[in-house]
């Protein structure tokens, strides 16, 4: 840190900004998607074209606001992606492969989430004027892209697990148990990849294994991650 232009204290401040950006993105996603847009529980994939159209006509404004919140959430998500990549680079001692994978995979996740939010915005733009069958197709697209985001996110968990296992420092940022947690999270997310085959049942996009378990999985992962990162910030402050 000796040749850096900014002080260690500023570096810690930037990490705190990254941490709070994670809270901001979670709040915006959670409230936008669930509370405002009302996408929880997810709409039944068996809904008819007319029912899908009616859903957007009836809740137009709330859906528009909800997904606007999602798009702002993505903006905070990018900052968090950078912060998480940087945390892994501290484990690696440089911005190595694990850091790049963690950052890049997170970045692309938020990019794709931004695109699917945009498509939701399109559906709510003037649903009265759109053909119901076309809306059904776009509605399938947004949900499939939302759930099938899973495979591109898997390298995050893989890279973080490897980082936790390879860390030899006395006080690791991510202890070994966290590595096992990431490995388990990775496997659990696999249940969602069947959503393109089914309209009904536990593997459909509103099902137990495609939606609810990955949601629980992600919650456990993000709570553990943010707790460990906060402890790391506190340790750096104590060492000042």
């Amino acid at each position: 840190m000796s040749n850096a232009g900014i002080s260690t204290r500023s570096h810690i401040t930037n990490q705190k900004i990254g941490w709070w950006c994670a809270i901001a993105y979670l709040m915006l996603f959670g409230n936008g998607f669930i509370m405002v847009a009302g996408m929880f529980p997810p709409p039944d994939p068996m809904l008819s074209a007319d029912a899908v159209k009616a859903m957007f006509v009836d809740n137009k404004l709330m859906i528009q606001i909800g997904f606007l919140m999602m798009m702002f959430g993505c903006a905070f998500g990018y900052v968090f992606a950078a912060y998480l990549g940087q945390a892994i680079s501290e484990v690696e001692g440089k911005f190595g492969i694990l850091s790049i994978v963690t950052f890049g995979s997170q970045f692309s996740t938020f990019l794709l989430l931004g695109v699917s939010s945009l498509l939701w915005e399109l559906l709510a733009f003037r649903p009265e004027a759109y053909d119901a069958n076309t809306m059904l197709m776009f509605h399938d697209l947004v949900w499939l892209s939302f759930i099938l985001l899973v495979p591109p996110t898997l390298p995050i968990y893989g890279a973080m697990a490897v980082a936790a296992f390879q860390d030899r420092s006395a006080v690791p940022i991510f202890p070994r148990w966290y590595g096992w947690l990431c490995a388990w999270a990775l496997v659990l997310f696999l249940g969602g990849v069947g959503c393109e085959f089914f309209f009904d049942g536990p593997f459909a996009w509103d099902g137990l294994f495609a939606f609810y378990l990955p949601l629980v999985d992600f919650t456990v992962f993000i709570v553990a991650t943010l707790t460990l990162l906060w402890k790391h910030i506190k340790r750096q402050e104590a060492a000042l």
Binding site: R176, W177, W180, L181, A183, V187, L188, G191
Partner: peptide
């Protein structure tokens, strides 16, 4: 190590849930 066992128990729980389904 203990973390491995917890991960395995967690994985078994998921499969148990799947078989129950």
């Amino acid at each position: 190590e203990i973390g491995l066992w917890i991960a395995i128990l967690a994985d078994l729980t998921i499969f148990t849930l799947m078989f129950a389904t």
